[in-house]
């Protein structure tokens, strides 16, 4: 019987799982549907809560998994079918060169998240104004040195698509409060003349150093936090007018901005329900992969032998994805002994 583990998804969760299995003498087939490993981490410029160089951090992990003995990496590859049970799965992998069949003992699903295109938010002029972008686009702008110059005003909008039963998802995307603070700090560092505003409902930044990070945005980088969900963004002669209510004083307010950044929702990866069907595992009401028990079995899917890691289970930060990758690896290792 095989002693291999199949890891689906080459983001930081899948990379970590593959590394840990290899370090413990196991064999891994890591499949990634895109051309490169790294997933969404590779699209970031910096990380919170300490501004780390995202590209360098992820490159180091990609190099480590590529040079690990016992890890075979297949890019442009997806899972076609899956039969069998824990310890003895037969999987069919499809890549550009054709399909191939493999026998594996365990499977780790690390398919990550998809970033919502907030096209439903016409009130924010998204898609209509080139100066209204998503936070993921902001990361790209930062990495390519395309942030606004001079005395520019930049407005960061929380909870776009999250905490919105009507047009998005009921859940909170967990980390956008933190990465919006990161973006405001990045903006101020890249352009000290810039004036930065964050509109929030409440600030959710839970983790070691996160509260201090948010406070530093306000106190050291002079980011103005206004409590109220933005109601609309209007484009007027090249300028953007952002309207909201400052709910702490109960008054409508207006800010003229050069750039508006929408913290959109982290949603389940594309095709998650189809992938779940191929594997025979459960998803939740949104399409994230469902764990059997959230407290003590966070990486166990509804089927023995198939484990879950990272943001394909819920919105989460890099550190949590790494932790889940490690735990999923140790669960997989129990099946190859």
């Amino acid at each position: 019987m095989s002693k291999k583990t199949l890891v689906i998804g080459g983001g930081i969760a899948g990379i970590t799982a593959a590394q840990k299995i290899a370090q413990n003498g196991g064999e891994v087939i890591l499949i990634e549907k895109e051309a490169e490993l790294g997933g969404n981490f590779a699209k970031l410029a910096f990380t919170f809560p300490v501004l780390g160089d995202a590209k360098a951090l992820v490159a180091k992990e990609i190099d480590a998994v590529k040079s690990a003995a016992g890890v075979e990496i297949l890019t442009y590859t997806t899972l076609q079918s899956c039969q069998g049970s824990a310890g003895d799965f037969t999987v069919e992998l499809k890549s550009a060169s054709g399909t191939r069949s493999e026998n594996v003992a365990a499977i780790i699903v690390a398919a990550g998240f998809h970033y919502m295109e907030p096209t439903a938010y016409t009130e924010y002029s998204y898609g209509r104004s080139k100066n209204v972008v998503t936070s993921l686009e902001f990361e790209k702008m930062a990495a390519e040195n395309r942030l606004p110059q001079g005395k520019a005003r930049v407005v960061f909008v929380h909870c776009v698509g999250s905490r919105d039963k009507a047009k998005g998802y009921r859940y909170c995307s967990k980390i956008c409060c933190s990465y919006s603070a990161k973006h405001a700090i990045m903006m101020k560092k890249a352009n000290p003349q810039s004036l930065n505003y964050v509109f929030y409902i409440d600030i959710r930044a839970l983790g070691k150093g996160y509260e201090e990070f948010i406070r530093s945005a306000m106190e050291e980088y002079n980011v103005r936090y206004i409590r109220g969900r933005v109601a609309k963004v209007i484009e007027n002669e090249g300028k953007l007018i952002v309207r909201a209510e400052d709910s702490l004083i109960g008054n409508p307010v207006e800010v003229e901005a050069d750039l508006v950044v929408l913290a959109s929702a982290m949603e389940p990866p594309e095709g998650s329900r189809e992938l779940a069907q191929v594997l025979g595992i459960a998803t939740d009401e949104y399409g994230f992969f469902q764990e059997t028990e959230a407290n003590v079995r966070p990486v166990n899917s509804s089927k023995p032998g198939i484990f879950l890691a990272g943001s394909c289970t819920q919105p989460m930060e890099i550190a949590a994805s790494v932790a889940m990758g490690g735990l999923a690896a140790s669960e997989a290792l129990t099946l190859i002994k």
Partner: peptide
């Protein structure tokens, strides 16, 4: 949700004494 989005865009809000959220 206590988000106050309602008052931010209302065309009459400047004449209100209570915001819709209030």
């Amino acid at each position: 949700l206590q988000c106050s989005k309602c008052g931010g865009g209302c065309a009459h809000t400047e004449e209100f004494d209570l915001t819709p959220r209030q």
